[in-house]
Structure formats: structure tokens, C-alpha cells
Design a protein around this nucleic acid. Sequence first.
DNA 1: AGGGCCTCCTGAGAGC
DNA 2: TGCTCTCAGGAGGCCC
Length: 296
Amino acid sequence: MIIDSSDCISPPFFVNIESFIITLLLMPELPEVETVKQGLQFLIKTSITACELINSQLRWPVDPLIPQKITQQCILDITRRAKYIVIKLRHGSLIIHLGMTGVLYVCQSHVSRKKHDHVIFTLSNNIELRYHDVRRFGSIHWAPHPIMQHRLLFQLGPEPLSDSFNPSSLHATLSTVKKSIKSTLLDQKIVVGIGNIYANEILFAAGIHPCRLSNSLRIDECKLLVKHTQSILTKAIALGGTTLKDFLNPQAKPGYFQQTLHVYGRKDQPCTHCHTNLAHIMHGQRTTVFCPTCQK
DNA sequence: AGGGCCTCCTGAGAGC
DNA sequence: TGCTCTCAGGAGGCCC
């Protein structure tokens, strides 16, 4: 099903909703959430005139009072913290996590609703912001100011692209952690925004074996981790995230990830560097792919 | 206290 | 062709 682009508001979103949904079967990580946030900036200063909960059974039940709380409020700002999109209103904020398959898309009100559209925010100018999520791993919360005190945001670690994420602080943090570095990179209390795909790629780029205990990493290895974390995420953001780039190209041309993934999704295939077959193991029910030769 | 496993969910793809 | 099973993963919560 193709939504006529004349129905849709502002690129880069919403040209072909079918493609958007399919490509977002890759989970949104920090670059994708950042790209969504940037794409929604044009909604700032618009008002929410209504909110409909079609299916409030997301990862957590959506507060049934949210429609009442947000209606007639103006969107003051749209920001990101970790993988959360924060829509700031006058008397509080909406905190939205896209989970694995969550999508925020904007269209005109008359556009027919899709299966798995769970929450509809009607805005002024006859447009709607819709939360669409096939697997319903995402969540939507209401938080009064100051929102950083909210339980979901309170314990989060540093943003990976900020100055607070640096080799010395990372080394100090890791020295207290006994679990594997792969699990640690996924721990949002250590550093935010990294999911399974980027964790695999970062460890490969840094030449660090995913099973290494976090507290065994030397300062020079922490420097490599910080360097490659920042370069990979920065590159992904510059390219518009993984899946949104794909979305702009419904002709199924490979997007950022298909072009640049070195290990994720390539188990048993040759290493792009040394040609050794890539190995894979499970870490907490998540697939970890690595090169047994390049990663020590 | 810290680490690791379980759980929620749906659709794609493989196997029969 | 159609049914069944497996797999994918974010992150809170529970168990050891």
C-alpha cells in the first residue's frame, strides 16, 4: 500500500509506509532515533487537538489519562535522550520509545489507518502523528517536569557523542563491571543508545573480543572503543540512520547497513579484514557475531 | 549486589 | 499449498 506523497507532510518520512515498516524490522538504535527526532522538528509550535488510544497495550499499558493531559497543549520542543524521543509540552512531556519496530509517522487526517497503528495524535492543520508498532515493544509515557527525574531517564548513562563519554571515564566504569564487554555495551546505564547491531560492529572495529570481561580492558582499548563508537554512530547519523535511508528508496537498494556491516548478520561468512569465517555466540539471548582472528 | 535469564510480541522464513 | 516451528531483539523484572 502506497500513501500518496501529496497526503504526507515534509520529507524525509512517509513516502511509502510499507517500505518504512519493513525496513524498521531492524531495531531503531541511537542514529535512527536521532534521525526521527530531527525529522519531527517541523511539528514544534503545533498544537495537539486530540489523542486516541487505539491499542494501549504496548510494552507497558499506556496511561489512559494521556489524551486528557496533552490535548490543547502546544509542542514546545522535540528532543532525544538515549533511545527515547521526548516531546515537550507546557505541563510535561511525552516520552516515546520505539522498541524494536516502532514508527512515528505523520500524515493528513483522512489517510486510512494501518494495522498496528496504536496511538493517534491529532495536530492542528489537520495532520496526525501516528505511533505504529508491529511487535509492541515500544512504550509511551507521560512525565511531569522535570522529566529527567522520570524513572526511565534517571539512571541512564552518558550520551556516546558527548564529552562525558571518554576513555578515562569509560575505563573507570568498566573496572567495576565483571560481565562481558558485549553485554556491557548494551547496558544503558553504562552508555546509552547502543543496540545489538552497533555493539557487534563497534567491537569488531575496535578489535575486542565480545567475551572479554569488561574489567579486563586496558585504557588503550577503552580509547579504541570510544573512538569507534563515536565514529560509527556519527557516520550513521550523517547518513540518516539505517532504515530511514532505506525508506527513502523503495526500490530496495541496500541502505547504510547492508553496505557497511562488517559482522552483524554475517555469521559464517568471511571476515572483511582477514577472511577467517566469522564466529557467532549467544549473549543473553542475543546473537553476537565476531572474527576470532581479528578480535582479541 | 551483581550477573544472567525470562518475558512480552509479530511476521518472515524454513521445514515438512 | 498450508501448517508448524524457529528466530529476531529492548529492557524491566525476577531469580540465583
